[in-house]
Design a protein around this nucleic acid. Structure first.
Lengths: 301, 301
DNA sequence: TCCATGATATACATTTTTGTATGATGCAGG
DNA sequence: CCTGCATCATACAAAAATGTATATCATGGA
């Protein structure tokens, strides 16, 4: 319970929590297991509490330790952001930019946009973090976010690039085998593809037909990309953005007239990034490219 | 431009920026000047850019270095928050809680509340950070904030404890010497006490009489507490919360009928803190005590 | 049951980091 | 102009952190 622990100890601590073992953390940190063990000992001594219950199977964090994890993660995110900012020095066309988006956007929409950006700015390294968490920008887990909901935080610069319409689709093999619903009530006889536990994703879609609920999903998965793969494999009927689905001729629209909803598409970055050349460059490029995407032109369409 | 710099280097870097010299930073960090110098060298080598221009008068950060400061500050705030959370272990009535408020609230209103809290919970250490920045909670610079504006961030738990009415006052010596204005137009002949550069503070007061602008202030200071001291010293006419001013019999109200405005009083904490016993204890205590304060009872009234 | 595997803990050698002492330089004041 | 005091830079010794090698224990599969 003495002076402030070295910040190194926090880094080690975080990695041990993530990894669940001293040995594993040591490998990732390019240290050795005894060193990592000593770091944990030192941090426990310094904070005056027990952080892990040790066992031959690994280290299990105590409840007290779990409370501290988010702070260590904040430090890690800030450290990574600092390094990105430092990369490339002052020059606008060098360095690293980190983008976050959903898996679907990241795999189906962004790649051609990022490719053309790299063509124009070969000195800029791109990082792509695919997930559905919305707090990434505040914590500086990423420099730019492409999201389907309006960012609420005040310190973000957000631009709405348009709306992307969504409809239901099925693979043509599925349609041949099982037929297609003529009306929404027919959904009960079909296999719907939808989210598993991520009801936030479901709710963010806004109003859906009554039958489109978790109970009626015959295939559930929280990865929108895996849902799309299942759709393409003929598992069942699932939602998809029109501008993506149209690239796959084997996908046939389902009840296109009856069901139609839209998601807004937003690009956002942290306020402080406005003056960082390379981030601004990519921000504008993505805004333009996504705008073309939602209008149905370009982006591989 | 090699691997990730040790987090220790960031801590040293931040202290060198704040201090402007290797020697000064060394003193604060309980290191020595050569060590601090080596840390800076190592960080520059690792990031691949020049961070300071060295001189016998100290080190001046380069523009590139200044871009990185906020990230290092985020790390420092997270580190401090981690240590506060770790303090006291799991027990609700031990550990450290950090409160932020304006100087005025912190000096005139909170002390008796904090005193009674300490009486009930002697095991809890209190920290008080007085300033007018509103982002403190998000960055975890503090655990609880007492503010006069509604916190906007989604991840905060905020409670409005009431409204505090404000009016103009002057010291009775001033009134004897210069008389008191009979109407707002008379303000021109008097010395008004107000903010210097902090127009945010001024604007947050809402609608003010037309003559209460920076140009008409005969005494300008961004510290509300120093303004209050000037008011008590008879410098001029200034605004003050009624519930504070009434404790000082030598202060006489000015145009109390004609001018009256109110500020909301809010207590806020980070969502994650709700489950941290000691923070919750103080949050509730402050909410109750401030509620009594705005109603004009207790708090030394 | 026995062995292979992967985990943590400990003992000792090595490397790295830090501190001490000193020198060089620039500014402020008499 | 010189002196006092602050700064940063450098050389060498001491201390601390790290790595290597090994022991010990638990688990899972043949």
């Amino acid at each position: 319970m003495q002076g402030e622990p070295g910040w190194e100890l926090y880094r080690t601590f975080l990695e041990v929590v993530r990894d669940g073992s001293l040995s594993g953390a040591a490998r990732k940190l390019s240290l050795t297991q005894p060193t990592v063990g000593r770091h944990v000992d030192a941090l426990e001594a310094s904070l005056g509490l027990s952080l892990f219950s040790r066992s031959p199977q690994g280290l299990k964090p105590t409840p007290a330790a779990l409370e501290l994890v988010s702070y260590a993660e904040t430090m890690a995110a800030a450290s990574a952001a600092l390094r990105r900012t430092a990369s490339g020095g002052a020059k606008a066309d060098r360095g690293t930019v980190r983008v976050t988006a959903s898996e679907m956007i990241g795999c189906e929409v962004l790649p051609p946009l990022l490719a053309s950006f790299r063509d124009s700015h070969p000195g800029i390294t791109l990082e792509l973090a695919l997930n559905n968490r919305n707090e990434d920008l505040l914590r500086r887990d990423a420099d730019i976010a492409v999201r389907m909901v309006r960012p609420r935080q005040k310190s973000l610069v957000a631009r709405r690039v348009g709306k992307s319409a969504i409809g239901f689709y099925a693979h043509r093999n599925y349609a041949e085998k099982y037929g297609l619903p003529k009306q929404i009530a027919d959904f009960e006889k079909h296999c719907l593809i939808g989210f598993d536990r991520d009801d936030l994703a479901l709710r963010s879609l806004g109003k859906l037909p009554g039958l489109v609920t978790r109970d009626n999903f015959g295939f559930r998965c929280d990865s929108d990309l895996a849902q799309f793969s299942a759709l393409k494999a003929g598992v069942g009927i699932g939602g998809c953005q029109h501008n993506i689905a149209r690239r796959f001729p084997e996908l046939v629209p389902v009840l296109a007239k009856a069901i139609r909803f839209e998601l807004e598409v937003w690009v956002a970055m942290h306020e402080d990034m406005r003056s960082t050349g390379r981030v601004r460059l990519l921000f504008d490029h993505l805004a333009a490219g996504l705008s073309a995407f939602v209008r149905g032109v370009g982006a591989g369409g």
